[in-house]
């Protein structure tokens, strides 16, 4: 690990003022400290934001939205009874991620800032355009079975590993940030960036901007009765997704009045296709409909390497997540959250 300056500002204004090129904000540290240990990240200054005031509240709004402070720990958000009841697929996604220990440390903002688990990004000795512009991409000819099938470029085929980001994308979340030029809001659909020619620019944040909160808009809780997160992994717990899906339906008189679908681990950001969601409006739920929707959601997919299997896997995961959502949100969080195994996974 490189040596670094350590700063612990007392306010958001002080934190933003303490930032300079090469500095990094430190939250739970579960990804940043790990990547510093292997030399992938070498910040010259760590700005410890853990004690900034007023960033750890979970507020539900009367209009069916919510505001989640940047420093809320993943475990606290998932286990907040009112929040989990209003946004069950967010809670399920959180509990499907990492381990109990990591969820106690990891923050909501840090979750959104985590880096790809592409093995070549995580190995400081491999060529990686995301780490170092122009270095090349070792993944293109390497172990790429779990990498992107949508939105990738010749420069980078990495996926975003966040479970939380998938339901947040489906619910049109908004990220509140503050920087030297003041505060602004970033729609979630623009927050995580596709690689294009500049994979190193992973988010829409300007240099030095700090996340203050994530907001769920009015009406997001209207999906509470029919919302699921489904995650396929190489083992049932404590593993990143091969493919995941957040599915939410608002039902009226047995028909779908409104539908949301986001796919995880297929691209550098959660993948949403409004045209696919629109196919469901006014329809009664059925396996045929959901298969058609899943096909539409994956219409642009193409392998970036030895990963064509992920396309069919994602279609089936999407269709199954929609079926699970149609069957209704379980009364209690499943023992194995987001898993295709166990009850009530078999709707």
């Amino acid at each position: 690990m490189n040596r670094f300056d350590y700063a612990r500002p007392a306010s958001v204004a002080e934190a933003v003022a303490a930032w300079e090129p090469g500095a990094a904000y430190l939250g739970g540290g579960t990804n940043l400290v790990d990547l510093m240990k292997v030399g992938v990240l070498q910040p010259a200054r760590l700005i410890d934001v853990n004690r900034l005031p007023d960033l750890d509240a979970i507020e539900l709004t009367a209009d069916g939205g919510a505001r989640i402070g940047a420093l809320v720990r993943n475990a606290d958000l998932a286990h907040d009874p009112a929040f989990a009841a209003a946004f069950p697929m967010v809670a399920e996604a959180l509990l499907a991620g990492a381990s109990g220990q990591l969820r106690n440390a990891a923050t909501v903002a840090g979750n959104l800032m985590q880096h790809t688990r592409c093995p070549y990004f995580q190995d400081a000795h491999s060529a990686c355009n995301r780490r170092q512009a122009g270095a090349g991409c070792a993944a293109r000819e390497g172990d790429n079975q779990s990498l992107a099938v949508l939105g990738w470029s010749d420069a980078c085929i990495a996926t975003n590993p966040s479970d939380l980001a998938v339901p947040l994308a489906s619910l049109d979340a908004v990220v509140e940030v503050e920087g030297r030029n003041g505060a602004r809001e970033i729609p979630f659909g623009e927050f995580l960036r596709l690689p294009g020619e500049t994979p190193g620019k992973e988010t829409a944040l300007e240099p030095g901007e700090l996340i203050l909160a994530v907001r769920l808009p009015a009406g997001a809780a209207a999906f509470r009765g029919n919302a699921r997160y489904l995650k396929l992994r190489e083992r049932t717990s404590f593993a990143f997704a091969l493919v995941s899906a957040a599915a939410a339906l608002r039902m009226e008189d047995g028909r779908i009045a409104e539908a949301r679908l986001a796919l995880g681990s297929v691209a550098a950001r959660p993948w949403r296709v409004p045209e696919a969601e629109a196919l469901m409006v006014g329809q009664p739920p059925s396996a045929e409909l959901f298969a058609q929707v899943a096909a539409a959601a994956m219409a642009d997919a193409r392998p970036s390497g030895d990963n064509a299997h992920k396309i069919e896997l994602a279609r089936r995961t999407a269709a199954r997540a929609l079926s699970l959502a149609a069957a209704g949100t379980p009364a209690r969080m499943p023992a194995l959250p987001a898993s295709p195994f166990g009850e009530p996974a078999h709707a």
């Binding site: 350590y6 612990r8 430190l26 540290g29 400290v33 790990d34 853990n50 220990q101 440390a105």
Partner: peptide
């Protein structure tokens, strides 16, 4: 609360 002590910097 249980955490991984390997990922916590003591200075924090």
């Amino acid at each position: 609360r249980r955490v991984n002590s390997c990922l916590k910097l003591a200075i924090t």
